[in-house]
Write a protein that binds this DNA or RNA. Structure first.
Ligand SMILES: Nc1ccn([C@H]2C[C@H](O)[C@@H](COP(=O)(O)OP(=O)(O)OP(=O)(O)O)O2)c(=O)n1
Ligand SMILES: [Mg+2]
Ligand SMILES: [Mg+2]
Length: 679
DNA sequence: ATCCTCCCCTAC
DNA sequence: TAAGGTAGGGGAGGAT
């Protein structure tokens, strides 16, 4: 491959120097870096740039590279390059044809959800392969679909943010220099107080006080900060603004819901009571999901995850507001940073939620639970403008249930002597681990509260729900939870899946998407410096009885789920290796491309793919001459980069580096450079 | 016994 | 129109 490439390069070089003619100077202020496979190829682009007065960078430089050229950029890589102009290669070709530099903005690889970049209208008549970048991707056959989708998927956002904060806590804890400025402020406050509430904890039982903290209707709270007229009103965050669905030929919400219910009955032998689709919708009712709804909206029975159409039936007055992904991130970081001022004994649960072991905070400051909760909540509200609630108890279960009681904008300490009474009235579906399936089973046994649940003997619960869940139900119903907080998180799998917009006409489109997804997973593995032995392909296939057109626009509809995995003798992270395996799997499954409604790739049995391992491999696989030349080539670039990097916090530094590494495709030499420099 | 694969369930 | 992701716990049943 390398040999082939250099031969090509020589050809171009010799052609260029042979005739020595520069055709034009249109690219005189342009310097490109080509990422990944493109059409025209990188070598051809290099040749074209040379002929038209432009520069071609073998390595990406933030200072000097003006444009990144790519046909496909894994989304996770693209995110790191948000500030760069990532442009389709056609820009170069068309510019040469026009003999002037065309507006690169017409050739941007992706469209963003950002408000500053208005989306161009969709024109059905003119969509072609070569200019499809001008229009918004409608389904997974479009090459832009994946990034378009991830840019707008709130579930993708909360998943990646969850992972981000688990990693964030890991990093803060392992950085060693742990200072807790919050403890001093708390102490000062304690010294000023007039009297200690008797209705609170004493020094002895400060041990093992667990706090659970969670933002109140997170996305809504963030969104209404600057929408004063919506405060105190029923509000929901969703993509749709009202019941405005376009009717589509063959789409039948009533039929699909009936089939869904039928399938459910066949499986469970009981009637479906799915909250989120319990009302019949007509074809213009919105099937956009509500990510979060205000407490005023909840009074009407509206819930997170419900279709907007159904919510509007419950409350026609419901106001909807759009997403603001950047703001959610900002607020979430403030939440975590604020708690981290007091302790790093934090188990990150999600972007708006965590468990905290408060034993050290309370014993170090002699603050009461109530004092700490008030101060912490006030601080978070002052900094973010958003309310949160806290619950305290002797274990994570009690803390979580206390939060539930405290909401919204409140705090509650479930003291040991009150646990027994408190549990009696707790609804079984409030227990963590009890979702729709388990609660439905319990309901059909006539059990709705933990008090009732306590009457069932352990063996009965275990035979009904399995050993583990049975035991958990038995203990949790009594307020017992032996699970410890987990402060350092270890990844066990990495995956990327898309079950929206999957519509393929043929295997070629299917395979193109599968390749992009492989690149996405590979890029995520690289981000966390991991590789894995087990590759799993997950697909959703239209159920036989389901109509081809789904009730929800581009939704998956009623599906059968299939997963198939293969285990390799040695772990991999390269996109090609992953693609090869999933392609084999999908070809053996004999599922028609047109019937696919969802695709996912998961890598498990992970091992570290640490820099030092790569370095070692790099040394093993290259002779001395190659090593020296590769490292020298990146020296200049890396030297410039370091100036920018030096002021960054270590996490961003690692990210930026990682993006360079992926981008430049010179992983080892660049890492080598920094590795050596940092010691 | 223990492990592996293919599920199902749950939480955000 | 709409953006139904992602990670982990765990069970059934077959292979070792
Ligand atoms: N089905 C869901 C559930 C949650 N979320 C997002 C939006 C929520 O705001 C955020 C946090 O989830 P929570 O379960 O904490 O719910 P809220 O914060 O919205 O409300 P609560 O006050 O009950 O915590 O995650 C989502 O998009 N879809
Ligand atoms: Mg919340
Ligand atoms: Mg939450």
């Amino acid at each position: 491959m390398n040999a082939k490439k250099s031969k090509l390069e020589q050809q171009f070089v010799s052609v260029a120097s042979d005739d020595g003619i520069q055709i034009s100077n249109i690219f005189k202020d342009i310097a490109i870096f080509v990422n990944g496979l493109t059409e025209p190829s990188a070598d051809e682009l290099r040749f074209l740039m040379m002929k038209h007065g432009g520069l071609y960078h073998h390595y990406y430089s933030t200072e000097r590279t003006t444009h990144v050229i790519a046909s496909n950029l894994p989304y996770s890589k693209m995110k790191l390059l948000k500030s760069m102009k990532v442009v389709k290669p056609q820009w170069i070709v068309d510019s040469i044809e026009a003999n002037k530099v065309l507006d690169y903005r017409d050739y941007l690889l992706y469209t963003s959800e950002s408000r500053t970049q208005p989306k161009l209208p969709f024109k059905t008549n003119f969509t072609t392969e070569s200019n499809s970048n001008r229009w918004i991707a409608r389904n997974a056959s479009d090459s832009n679909f994946l990034s378009e989708f991830y840019n707008n998927s709130r579930l993708h956002l909360i998943s990646t943010m969850g992972a981000t904060f688990k990693e964030y806590i890991n990093k803060l804890r392992s950085s060693g220099k742990n200072v807790y400025p919050g403890l001093e402020t708390l102490k000062a406050h304690v010294n000023e107080r007039l009297s200690r509430s008797t209705d609170d904890c004493t020094v002895e039982n400060c041990k093992n006080v667990i706090m659970h903290i969670d933002m109140d209707c997170f996305f809504v709270s963030v969104g209404i900060r600057n929408r004063h007229h919506l405060m105190g009103k029923p509000v929901a965050v969703t993509h749709a603004r009202g019941n405005n669905a376009h009717p589509r030929e063959g789409a039948d919400p009533t039929l699909e819901r009936k089939l869904y219910a039928k399938k459910y009955e066949e499986k469970t032998g009981t009637e479906m009571r799915k909250d989120h689709w319990s009302k019949s919708l007509n074809e213009t009712d919105s099937m956009a999901e509500i990510a979060s709804c205000s407490y005023e909206a909840r009074k009407y029975g509206i819930k997170n995850g419900m279709f907007l159409g159904q919510a509007l039936k419950l409350c026609p007055d419901l106001k909807t507001i759009p997403y603001d992904f950047e703001d959610y991130k900002e607020v979430a970081f403030v939440l975590y940073d604020t708690v981290a001022k007091y302790t790093l004994n934090i188990e990150a649960v999600s972007c708006d939620e965590m468990f905290v072991d408060c034993s050290e905070i309370l014993s170090a400051t002699s603050a009461t639970v109530t004092e700490f909760a008030s101060i912490l909540r006030r601080e978070i509200k002052e900094k973010t403008g958003c309310p949160c609630s806290t619950g305290f108890g002797n274990n994570r279960l009690q803390a979580r249930l206390a939060t539930k009681k405290a909401k919204p904008d409140g705090q509650f300490y479930l003291k040991p002597e009150n646990v027994s009474d408190f549990m009696n009235n707790i609804d079984i579906s409030d227990l963590p681990g009890v979702g729709s399936s388990t609660s439905h089973k319990l309901h059909s046994m006539g059990i709705r509260t933990c008090g009732k649940l306590q009457a069932l003997p352990l063996h009965k619960l275990q035979s009904e729900f399995g050993n583990k869940l049975g035991e958990t139900l038995y203990k949790n119903s009594r307020g017992i939870d032996e699970k410890k907080l987990v402060f350092t998180n270890v990844r066990k799998s990495v995956s990327a899946e898309v079950n929206y917009g999957i519509r393929f006409q043929n295997d070629t489109d299917r395979d193109k998407f599968l390749k992009q997804l492989s690149e996405e997973v590979s890029s995520r593995l690289a981000e966390v410096k991991m590789k894995g032995k087990c590759i799993t392909l997950k697909i959703m296939v239209r159920s036989k009885e389901a109509p081809e057109e789904t009730a929800k626009y581009m939704g998956h509809g009623l599906c059968d789920y299939i997963t198939k995995s293969c285990t390799l003798s040695s772990p991999v992270f390269e996109a090609n290796s992953i693609f090869r395996e999933v392609l084999t799997i999908i070809n053996n499954l004999n599922v028609k491309a047109k019937e696919l409604r969802g695709i996912g790739i998961q890598i498990s049995r992970l091992e570290n793919n640490a820099v030092s391992n790569n370095l070692k491999k790099f040394f093993d696989q290259n002779d001395k001459k190659t090593l020296v030349s590769k490292v020298t080539k990146t020296f200049d670039n890396a030297n410039n980069r370091e100036k920018e990097l030096i002021n960054m916090p270590s996490t961003s530094k690692a990210c930026t580096l990682q993006s360079d590494i992926n981008l430049a495709d010179v992983s080892i030499s660049q890492v080598f450079f920094f590795h050596v420099r940092s010691y």
